[in-house]
Design a protein around this nucleic acid. Structure first.
Lengths: 157, 157
DNA sequence: ATTTCATGTAACAGATGTTGATACGTGACT
DNA sequence: AGTCACGTATCAACATCTGTTACATGAAAT
């Protein structure tokens, strides 16, 4: 489950959305297939993890992947036609919140009220997330100047 | 870190806020000291975990704890003077979100833009949480009818 | 004064769950 | 054919939280 001690910064964050967006933007700059090996390195992980992460985007039709010589990953449509929301959904709608209820004890009115209060706020916060994600197309995240693709932590990239 | 496969329901939620609220409401109904043993059982855990969880609330002055015979836990002020926000803060402001950035590579403009976009939404969502938490005093969560305190899962409680 | 009760805290073990690594099968291009 | 790259299953490594136990401290009862 989650923290018990401090508040600080949980290092237990799902970084897939951030990771995938990062890669997609780079793919939007280079218009040739890039291999899992290269792209995985750019996000500081390995090819198998990368493929696993991108499977949903491929299924959603945001990117295409090809085997063999000259194979690799490419955008299937321009960044202007991909919303942050659609990427989030393609990843399988990863859990947004780190808090929740231990269990739904429906017989306890107190528990019921508490759950409702928290759930109510979480529903609103989730709606906020989805609304804003839906407004953002990936081209708007592109820096003005082209950015070179390099290995994670090895300089600009 | 977090999920990679499905989306479903992460069972890895921090339930402390929900747990603590549950207990505080029960304490608001019974006006006598209750032991860690009893209260822990009502949330389905054990006394040590309970004390660890309540330490912040005691330090914040929301509850008092006493040792020895007749000792235990009591509210230090009426529920109407305790906001959901103050409870959240007393717990150490547990992490709200399950998503984040893998790392802040400040040299990568793409990464920078992605992080900013996500962070912006998260800041707004957090503000929403805190605003709503701040509006809720615990007495408003109290069911109209008194609720008996029983063991977790053992019926109403 | 001693005994009993209950908290306060530290320390450790167990469980859970995610990421990373490896291996192997499949298809495509040379 | 041979090489390249993806697709996926499986396993190990790692991190983190919860649950448990143990023990010291302090208060009330006998």
């Amino acid at each position: 489950m989650r923290a018990q001690a401090g508040a600080e910064e949980d290092m237990n964050k799902d970084t897939r959305l951030s990771d995938v967006l990062h890669v997609l933007l780079h793919m939007g700059q280079l218009h040739e297939p890039l291999t899992s090996d290269v792209l995985a390195r750019s996000m500081g992980t390995n090819p198998a993890v990368f493929r696993r992460m991108m499977a949903g985007l491929r299924d959603a039709g945001h990117v295409t992947s090809g085997k063999g010589h000259g194979g690799g990953w490419q955008l299937a449509r321009p960044l202007s036609e991909i919303t942050l929301l659609s990427v989030y959904v393609a990843l399988g709608r990863p859990t947004l919140f780190a808090i929740g209820n231990r269990s739904d004890n429906p017989a306890c009115l107190v528990q019921k009220n508490v759950n409702a209060a928290l759930a109510d706020t979480m529903v609103q916060a989730e709606a906020l997330f989805l609304a804003r994600f839906g407004e953002v197309t990936l081209d708007t995240l592109m820096p003005d100047a082209p950015v070179p693709l390099t290995v994670h932590g090895g300089g600009p990239g």
